[in-house]
Design a protein around this nucleic acid. Sequence first.
DNA 1: TTATTAAATGAGAATTATTCTACTTACGAA
DNA 2: TTCGTAAGTAGAATAATTCTCATTTAATAA
Lengths: 141, 141
Amino acid sequence: MKREEISKKLVEKGLKVTPQRMAILEAITKLNNHPTAENIIEFIRQNNPHIATATVYKVLDALTDNGLIKKVKTEKDIMRYDAIIESHHHLYCSVSDRIEDYNDEELNKMLEAFFAEKEIPDFKIEDIKLQIIGKFLRNKS
Amino acid sequence: MKREEISKKLVEKGLKVTPQRMAILEAITKLNNHPTAENIIEFIRQNNPHIATATVYKVLDALTDNGLIKKVKTEKDIMRYDAIIESHHHLYCSVSDRIEDYNDEELNKMLEAFFAEKEIPDFKIEDIKLQIIGKFLRNKS
DNA sequence: TTATTAAATGAGAATTATTCTACTTACGAA
DNA sequence: TTCGTAAGTAGAATAATTCTCATTTAATAA
């Protein structure tokens, strides 16, 4: 994602474009294994050593609230973030912290069709995400 | 779940049967909205006021490690636990903390068939869980 | 039943991710 | 230029969880 793209996204959401927000959004897109706040802070401080921890958390919240990033559910107590906001699924490694994205249009259509026919009583579905747990057979390229 | 059932499960896993473990496992089965550690501590202290916080966390870890309970992924930084260890799906309320179990044999078969045919490259699936996010149309009974 | 011992528990301190507080700074509108 | 609001900062505070290590207990063997 280019800087001007990032900037445009912020403007679209009515958020002021600041160097901190640019840096954070850029960091999340570059650190592509669903980084933690700490990962993001570490990355940003390489070029921008004076950014405050609280700023990062506030910006992450603001970006999440405005749908520019998403929080990823994990079984750990550390929050992780994802720059891909289109609904998608995740592959979780059962022995490490690795999390990869997964998507399959056919799968989505199948699920959609399933729940269109078989409604869940007293529940209105907004989104469906698969957590696919297993083992990666090779290391990340 | 009866007390002797709980006890049997612990023995099967080679865990010593202690009053604390009994109480904690019983609490999770009774508190059926996927309780937090705090919920569990509060519940247990009604009858067992001297149980230590650290004990509860250690027991929860031991039970999780031995597959007697499961951790539930949430977007909050509080861990929640589930006494149902068979693979199952969850309905997450998008506006509250409510989490309900969901299961459908037909759905599971469909997913199994899908991934049997369409393998994920370099990934060996161990389990698939759906996070179904949406709104409950009525309060919990 | 008693002795043995590894495992489990307890109390409170420590840790750590995150949030809060009380500023200061930046910036567009009036 | 001044005002008002949003954003950023540093560091303290909070809260869930983990650690430490002394004490107790459950399971096993004698």
